[in-house]
Design a binder for these strands. Sequence first.
DNA 1: CTTTGCGTTTAGAATGTTCTAAACATAGAA
DNA 2: TTCTATGTTTAGAACATTCTAAACGCAAAG
Lengths: 160, 160
Amino acid sequence: MNSEIEKIRDYFIEIAGSMAGNLGLNSIAGQMYALLYISSEPVSLDEITDILKVSKGNVSVNIRVLERWGAVKKVWVKGSRRNFYKANEDILEIIKNRIKEGITKRTKEIDSELSRAEEMLQSAGKQLNKEDKKITDVYKQKIADIKKLSAKVEGLLRII
Amino acid sequence: MNSEIEKIRDYFIEIAGSMAGNLGLNSIAGQMYALLYISSEPVSLDEITDILKVSKGNVSVNIRVLERWGAVKKVWVKGSRRNFYKANEDILEIIKNRIKEGITKRTKEIDSELSRAEEMLQSAGKQLNKEDKKITDVYKQKIADIKKLSAKVEGLLRII
DNA sequence: CTTTGCGTTTAGAATGTTCTAAACATAGAA
DNA sequence: TTCTATGTTTAGAACATTCTAAACGCAAAG
């Protein structure tokens, strides 16, 4: 491959890496995805190692992260014992899935913890004076509001 | 304040902190916001220091982060020289603003970098053989696709 | 069975983030 | 002016993440 083209490819990879870094993701994972995305042929793990100049351990770990996200897919290449990968090109879908997965997992956890807090409020409520009763009432209201918010967010996710 | 109530408050704060941590945000900022959110009265910086058991430097830095996000607001309390804060209770709005701000900033940057890559492709294209021409054509297509995606994301933001 | 090629795991180095404690700045009180 | 109360900045400690190099495991080739 012409080295001028390589420069362009590497520039593209660099953009993707810093983009990923900005979003709080691992920038090597971003670079790896970009390399697979821009390549018309499947790429092997050691080609990734070569092109990105990172250790194969690093590549090994991050390719599995990308696989778990559904961002890349292993493909079989006739006559080679190596693992080759190609990108899932539907980036929007990848992002959506990651957001959905992350948020539904968390809203569930948080809801159950908030319910626990509500129980605590309930059982504490019995032996309180007027002043403290007022505070717990505020707490109840706020916690209920957060639960509503959480339901709303889940609803939003469904329509995306 | 009754210590039973304090326990509940602190549990709520803890939930918020771990939620923030999960989302890649600073968990102290999350705890601070939660404290202000659950409190019916404005809270001063040294009360935050006391309740969360973190240094005042830490509180000073994170309160400005929260202010920048529009998540909290300084309020004046008669007869005190301290700075008091209250939470902006519209959490969904805070989240939306942060997402919008972050993404529009980035899509702009990325678009301009991609345009730069397109220029490089354009000027490289002149002196290429058939094989390399094919590669640059693929690159052009992919970069154009990403630009389309970026426009689509910005569109999505506008309707949220 | 032994060797080779390839991916995975792991220990610890390198780097990045967040936190504290202390120095500092500043406005108001005395 | 000097002292006090308050918030900010900063140097570096504590902690967390990411990376590499090397050891390891295993399947295919010889």
